[in-house]
Each structure stands twice: as C-alpha cells, then as structure tokens.
Amino acid sequence: MQVNSSNETNYIVFIIAALVVLILLVGFILYFVVSYRSKQKDYQLLEDQKKKIDEQKHILEKTLEELRATQQQLIHAEKMASLGELTAGIAHEIQNPLNFVTNFSELSTELISEMKTAVEHHELNEVLSLADDLALNMEKINFHGQRAGSIVKGMLQHSRSGTPQKELSDVNRLVDEYVRLSYHGMRAKDKTFNASYDLNLDPEIQPFPIIPQEIGRVILNLVTNAFFSVNEKRKRTFENYQPLVKISTQKKEQEVIITIEDNGEGISDENASKIFQPFFTTKPSGQGTGLGLSISYEIITQGHQGKIELNNHLNQGGTSFTISLPL
C-alpha cells in the first residue's frame, strides 16, 4: 500500500516537473519567435532607412558633382567677365609697344634708305654709324614686341581653365602690370573716370613661387573695386575730393604683404561680413558677378595658404585690403 502511494507521488512529481519543463521550453520558443520578429521589424526599418539614406546620399553626391561643375563654369565665366573688363586696359597697354614698333620700324626704313645713299657715296663711316642706329632700333623693336607678347601671354594665362602651377614670379612687376591694366580699363569704359593711383613697391622683394595669373586676378579684382568705389564717391561729392588708390608691397620676414587702399565710399559693417561670400555684390545690377572677392579669397587662402583681410575705414572713408603671401 505504501509502495503504491510512493509511486503515485513519484508520478505526480514527475508529471508536474515534465510539464514545467514543457512550459519553459514552449515559453522560451514563443519568446524567441516574438522577439525575433520584433527585432526583424526594427532591422527592416533600419534597412529601409539605410536605403533611403543611401538614395539621398546618391542624390547629394550627384548634386555636389553638378555644383562643382557649375562652380567651375562660374569661375571660368568670372574669368571671362574680368577679361572683358581688361580688354580696354590691354588694348591700351598693347597700343604703346605697337606705337614704338611702328615708329622704330618707320625710322629703320628711313635709316636704310640713308644707308643706301651713303654706300653709293662710299661714306664708310656714315654707313657704320647708320648701322649702329639701325641695330639700336631693332633692339627697341624687339623689346617692345616682347612687351606686347608678354601682355598677350598674361591675357591667355588669365583666361586659361585648369589647374595652374606655381612659378617663381616678380610680384612687383605683376602688381604694376595689373594696376595699369585696371586703370586703363576703367578709363576706357567710363570716359568720366578720374582717379589717381600711387604705387609704392618694395624693391627688396625677390621672385618667389606663386601662380602669377591667379595673383594677377586678385590684384585686378581689388584694384578695380577700389577704382570703382573712389569714382562713385567722386560722382556724388561736390567738395574738393581727390579720388586716390594706394597700392603697396612690403617684404616681411616670412611673408610679402600687398596692400590696396582707397579713400572711396567704404563698406558698411553689415556688408563687410559678407563680401567674401559668393554672389554678394554691392555694384549695380549687371556690373558685377559677385564672385570676384570670393574667388580672390579662395586663391589666397587655399591656393597660396595666405591671408586676405579687409580693414574698413568707414569713419575716415575708404577701405583697405591686405594680402599676406607666405614666402
């Protein structure tokens, strides 16, 4: 009787224990399936988001590519626009050497004719003297021809697209050349333009590696802006106002400083913070692309690891830009 009772208890305990194991197993598997599905949903959501992000990334990359292409086109357009501004200055600059070439070649023709007469009269000394003059003329023709050639070369460099390389260049010569181009350009464009400029170039500066056509563009931009500003002020001022643009270069220990200063209208504080932004311009519609200063900023800071700063003299009138180029 006792054995039977013990067996029954044993069975009951066994069945309860087996049921507990069964419930635990079923519970675990159910929990696993439910949590797996929930995680699968999260995972799917994550996958969808990743897919969307990838799509957006692709679109953004494409847009960025298009923007870069547009930027390149704009830079080129800006180059062409400034080239247009330069045309008058260039014409003036080329006209001078061409005049020399024409005059000296005419003079040379006369000298040859005189030489022929001297040869006919067997005046050897006269022939030799005329030959010396002729050689001198030829040298001058060659000099002015090369001068015209270098202006054309500069113009071609200015308009060329692609990645230019740094080369040893004389900054003073570059400043002088582009200031004159700008000045004559302004004069040719606006017959009423009247301003003077003062060049103060440091003779201590030796040629150092820069990208000449790019630095030329920066100088051209800043000087043209300065001339524009003083000319605008002159138009509005009836007092005894002397429009003046001062351009100077200075050698310091590890850098060369180029300063372009004007006594024009100045820039308001509000505008001063925006002037290096692309497409920002205070010039009347159609007279500026708004890219000149932003491209100048890029050329100096990224292309030459230099600095470009604006010092606003609004109270005294005018502004000055300081460019630092590391040696």
Binding site: F32, V33, S35, Y36, R37, K39, Q40, Y43
Partner: peptide
C-alpha cells in the same frame, strides 16, 4: 546568434 544577426526573412 539567429536573433542577434536576424539571419532569416521567415523563421
């Protein structure tokens, strides 16, 4: 491992 890496589309 199955749960962590969400191996299968339909369990």
């Amino acid at each position: 491992e199955i749960r962590q890496h969400v191996f299968y589309d339909n369990l």
